[in-house]
Design a binder for these strands. Structure first.
Length: 576
RNA sequence: GGACCGAUAGCUCAGCUGGAUAGAGUACUUGACUACGAAUCAAGGGGUCGGGGGUUCGAAUCCUCCUCGGUCCGCCA
């Protein structure tokens, strides 16, 4: 039972009593009633808007309701004072024991403090899903970090999470990859080749060509594409996926499932998913309206096989077959999501780059249709990463050789800073990533801030003989924690479970990062008091009870910071 | 022509899904350490929340119309 739920229950009980006493009319909904910490701590520990949201339906003045509620709550256990403020806020000041008890709650739960109860449901998070045609670049990194942190957050919140990568190995781009590797293969045999336009020029394919030579010798030299294409494609795709997995591992990302698009072809699975839609009357032959505005030169109306996605919220119907009868890219994606739905997930999450924004509605429409509206799909778009160097925008170009890979970023700033920087903002806001700030000024980044708090905590907690162990600390007299700074820290710790639940619900891992920053900041302030005033040091000579209480508090802080960094995938460091 | 996302302090970003006087970091100004880690702390200045209209007790947040920036719009995935 968290503090917030406890007090909210008190408020609801009082409202119920007021209804029974006739102060409030019967049948009011209390759904809109919130009990939250006010923005300005001077207003009290908690505030409720009950009077204001009930005023209109009850036909009473907000301040009158608030006054009556205050009277009823004044005698409630744990509430020291209730006062009406502003237009009808009811500010509550709690018995300090309520907050002090939080330290013991944290110690009791240990690393699991704030963790949601298991059994929230099965959720599939698909992220990265970069084409297997080259190493990950900086744009993929954001999706990777975001998806990974979101998955960890949901896991912490009590969901059963699958982390999944969709390998786009079924389209034309892997044929291009195969041909590119074939040229490198010829090169490895000493032939002078110039890479034609439209192939992948990257150096990373040179060793793949050499590896192909080592595997097949000269068997493919002079042979027609029909002989080698399929084998080289498969060989090259495997090589690229090995590269990508290594990149992900360097970033600290591990997938549970790699799902191959190719596995959907020739097995009847695409057909089966479209049959399912067909049975629901959502597949038809038809001709799309030409796009408004600039008309493609070669536009002519053509009959195609279409998915009636407008039935499920899309703006126009979408083709699943090209005019030549082959599948569009949308068709295997439908089959893939059909597969995910049929694997029994309660909810699906896709993390896409911003360039897939136009794809969201049709994918949601497909999942809505395939699952008969039973499985919600949330699509999180990560906006582009704008690179800066020396304060100026840094252009990424494959041709100019200024292509910034995930490896480049990791080599410069390391995985922890990369992750934290990318997580200290919302996924749908653009991100400016400055190499200089991340390198030269990386110390001022929040990650270091949180890390330095951890280092300090570890140093202090390692020091005192006789206080080691959470069981010893759990016996501390936390009633001694009555300083304003201590109560502020306790209130922040009390928020953690609530924050985790809200962040998981909103699919917003960045809230964790900001919370950790705030918590570390409060800790630094608290720690500093000891520098000014010897009486405020953690280890107080001759006062073992006070020392134990303060160690219990900062041990709780340590546990929460570690748990939070764990969710973000940042390595907690006890030494800087 | 249309869809989606963004616009908050000089700069980089939060703002707990409608709450009270809009907050951090950074930069700037001022002050505080000879080590329980200054990789820190305290204080100060800095804002028409892109603009107009609307909804209500109350709007940065919701609805609507504009402006600017980004992404995308049948046979690339």
């Amino acid at each position: 039972m968290t503090v917030f739920r406890e007090i909210k229950a008190q408020v609801l009980a009082s409202l119920g009593a007021m209804t029974a006493a006739g102060t409030l009319p019967e049948g009011l909904s209390f759904d809109a009633v919130t009990v939250e910490p006010p923005r300005d701590p001077a207003h009290g520990d908690l505030a409720t808007n009950a009077a204001m949201v009930l005023a209109r339906p009850a036909g009473k003045k907000p301040r009158d309701i608030a006054a009556a509620l205050a009277e009823d709550l004044a005698s409630a256990p744990g509430i020291r004072m209730a006062s009406v403020a502003g237009p009808g806020f009811l500010n509550l000041r709690l018995d300090p024991a309520i907050w002090q008890g939080v330290a013991l709650q944290v110690l009791g739960a240990g690393a699991g403090y704030g963790r949601g109860v298991p059994g929230q449901g099965r959720v599939n998070v698909e992220y990265v899903s970069a084409n297997p045609t080259g190493p990950l670049h900086v744009g993929h990194t954001r999706g990777a970090v975001f998806g990974d942190a979101l998955a960890s957050l949901l896991d912490f919140a009590g969901f059963d999470v699958t982390r999944e990568y969709y390998i786009n190995d079924g389209g034309g781009q892997v044929d291009v990859l195969a041909r590119s590797v074939f040229y490198r293969y010829l090169e490895a045999h000493g032939q002078a080749v110039t890479l034609p336009e439209g192939t992948y020029p990257g150096d990373y394919l040179i060793p793949v060509g050499a590896a192909l030579k080592a595997k097949v010798g000269d068997a493919y030299i002079g042979q027609d594409e029909s002989v080698w294409l399929e084998d080289v494609r498969s060989f090259a795709t495997d090589a690229m996926m090995a590269l990508i997995r290594a990149d992900l591992a360097a970033l600290g990302v591990t997938m549970d499932v790699f799902f191959s698009e190719k596995s959907l072809y020739g097995t009847g699975r695409i057909e089966a998913s479209l049959t399912d839609l067909g049975n629901k009357g959502l597949i038809y032959r038809g001709t799309l309206e030409p796009p408004k505005g600039k008309l493609p030169e070669d536009w002519e109306p053509r009959e195609q096989t279409l998915f009636r996605s407008t039935e499920h919220g899309d703006d126009i119907d979408r083709p699943v077959k090209k005019s030549d009868g082959t599948w569009t890219y949308f068709a295997p994606d439908i089959a893939y999501h059909f597969d995910k739905v049929s694997r029994g997930y309660d909810r699906l999450i896709d993390v896409f780059g911003a360039d897939h924004g136009g794809y969201v509605k049709r994918m949601k429409a497909a999942v809505s249709a395939l699952s008969a509206g039973q499985v919600p799909l949330d699509i999180k778009l990560t906006q582009l990463v704008k690179l800066y160097k020396d304060g100026a925008p840094f252009k990424m170009s494959k041709r100019a050789g200024t292509f910034v890979t995930l490896r480049d970023v990791l080599d410069q700033v390391g995985p922890d800073v990369t992750r934290f920087v990318m997580l200290t903002r919302k996924n749908d806001a653009p991100l400016d990533f400055d190499f200089d700030k991340a390198t030269v000024l990386s110390l001022s980044y929040p990650v270091s801030f949180a890390q330095s708090a951890l280092a300090c905590l570890a140093a202090v907690l390692a020091m005192p003989p006789g206080f080691a162990g959470d069981t010893a600390l759990a016996a501390a007299d936390v009633g001694l924690l009555d300083h304003a700074a201590e109560l502020e820290l306790l209130r922040k710790l009390a928020e953690w479970p609530r924050l985790v639940a809200a962040a998981a619900d909103a699919h917003e891992p960045h809230r964790i990062a900001f919370y950790l920053y705030d918590l570390a900041s409060l800790f630094h302030g608290y720690q500093h008091l000891g520098k000014m005033d010897p009486g405020m040091r953690f280890l107080t000579d001759g006062q073992p009870d006070l020392t134990a209480a303060r160690l219990a508090l900062i041990r709780a802080v340590q546990l929460v910071i570690r748990a939070g960094l764990g969710i973000l995938g940042v390595t907690p460091r006890d030494e800087m």
